[in-house]
Nucleic acid binder design. Sequence first.
DNA 1: TGTAAGACGTCCG
DNA 2: CGTCTTACA
Length: 774
Amino acid sequence: MLPMDMVFGYKSTIQWYAVWNLCLPYVDYAMHRVRLLRHHNITPYIVFDGGPLPAKKGTESERKQRRDENLDRANSLAAQGKHTQAREFYVKCIDVTPQMAYQLIKALRAESVPYVVAPYEADAQLAYLERIGLVDGILTEDSDLLVFGCKTVLLKLDAVEAMVTSISRVDFASLGATTVGGFSLLGWSDVQFRAMAILSGCDYLPSISGVGLKTAWALLKKHRTIENAVRALRLEGKKDVPKGYLEAFRLAENVFLHQRVYDPTQEQLVYLTDVPDGEDWDEAKEAHVGRYIEPSLAKRIAEGDACPITLLPMEDINPTFVPRALKPIPMNILLSSKSDAKGKGKAKALFSEKANSTGILNFFRESAKSRAAVTAKSASQPVPRLGTGSSEKSRIVAGRASGKRTLAEVLDHDLAAKRKKREETERPATPARYTPTDTPSRFFGVASSSTMKLPAGIELERTAGPSRPRLSEGNKENITSIDEDEVDEFSCEEEADPVMQEDGYISPSPSLSRFDTPELSSPLRPGTSSSKLSVDDMEDDGFGADILSSPPSIRSKPPAFRKGRNTRAPTPVDQQHAGRVLVCSTPTKSGKVKTDMVPGPDLQDIFSDWNDVGDHFDNSADISVASEASSHGPNTPEDSRILREIQVAEALDEILSDDEDNSELRARQQRIVDGWRKQYASRPRKFPAYGAPRRRETTITPEGRQRLKNSLAPKTASTAKHSPRQKPPITRTTAFVNLEGNPGNVQSTRHAIRVEGILPSARSKLEGFRYAAA
DNA sequence: TGTAAGACGTCCG
DNA sequence: CGTCTTACA
């Protein structure tokens, strides 16, 4: 159904969610999305943040300080018995460690999901992966990716509204051409674009006071180069340009350009973009882009076997958590009325049995009941939202096996364990002292200790590192996620096997019993099966800095390995129920929705569209402006690097099954959706200032423009019935460049994509997209 | 008009 | 972290 495998880079940002859910559920959370993506034959390529980058030191020490403060406040509040208030500050001081991320890595391995731990920043790593063609695009919540030169960036996969905002450089020109408000990037080189981003403030360089995105944009537009812009600023004298700003700017620029990343094909560190031969390269620059790490260690870091911060062997803080490779059971069961589970393991068998006996559609209802029952025992209210709960009843049940505890208590305990662990492992000679929040993790974008120096090679500045996990505490994570009721209900014989979550949710990544050998697979190693891919293959136009415009020549022919062991073959059930994603209508400027919509390309084609349009948009009337900009634009080297365009934003529409049998469920889901809409989407919708978004109706392939092949695609009965009942797609303005919290002014649109032909239960899967571990 | 700073929500299948 | 609001220049 969806024959092509797509690989999307996915920056793992568990962030607070890991804390919120405590411990291992965050693994399930992430795997949930992974499974969902894979269900749509999109292979997520998870990218983790790695070690600290000196360039971010300012930002990170700031964050660390905030965390310290929050910990202090939390402790003092807790000491006063004000646990509710203390909780809020505990949350703010929690750090996600590489060791926690490693738990997710274990799950990824078990399901053969490609991943890589960036030596330094995931952003740069993602950009590199896309650049060399290991991924086709990037799903992220971060917008810095564009500055790194990513071509296809998907933001805000919003499953609740079933929307996704896509920003790709393919859209730049068309956006610029039509933008009202004078915010056009038409004709901009990526050098300028990057300069604008840095000038307006980024992680590596704070902005000149009083200079935001708009000013930066205006300056760059007028003066073209950063030197000119800064000179003009200084001349004007209204803004205080710090001394040495230009030098600092160059360093920051280097981080975007030449940051060290890991090349999975070469199994070594490389520069995101090669440093030009002529450029003098001193120690300061070297430190800024991240130091070289010898290949064997770099590989171990990339694969999760070594901590990217300490460079020591990765500590498994929870050895009993052993994710098992699963066929996509929950998905399949939910999608079909008969189980497709033919794997091994009791949990699975039980699951299937249950699914068969009570019906798939009842499963969630049953779970919901269980959950309600469990919750009711300890709290008379629904689980409160974190950080806002002030009621004394605002308790979060952490689990029953170890007694119900509040979040604050668990966090407290967790912190204590962390502290203890750190003290254990800290060598007396180590100069730095570590507080519990001093964990210099840069995973998931969390700050690291400012006292840490970046180790060069294997030389370690510090030795704080993994310690032997203590079983009692190591197990806690699992224990807290066990619910005995659920275990009983499902007749799980292995009580220690935490298949069930507290809410009755069956973990997609159930732990194994100790005697069950997990199937562990290595992370993706493309080099072994793909033809040689090296940086040498990439375009070098002498302006290596301009990664934005490197042609997707490699990408258009994805390496063969992607079809291999890293991508599971679609099961019959998958194929039967594979989501058909269709482009829905385009809102007009007046907010009306065309009703004569034609089904657009399915997800696959949209994605391939995104991939290829950059080189073939000349055939598309929609982006003829872009075409012009690119093919007939100025001929200076810089201008030839025009950010050609941004891909038209796409979005998912509601997934509504028309299955007669599911009308009740559908209605229920509709109510849920409406509720969400009311709660989260009630703001007035603004349409993009630059006019009615255009809808791409064609699939553009390397061969050129295609017919609307998907509109002619065979329709299932349910698909055919769909068209009349589409919801108006929601369009809203969306920040595009968002550097350091400055709301971007560039707008993008959201188009609607309908996902048809899958059961409503699958829709809930889609909802997991929103905060995808990206 | 734009920037800076602060509050708030994210998740809850 | 992103978004939104508000105050301030």
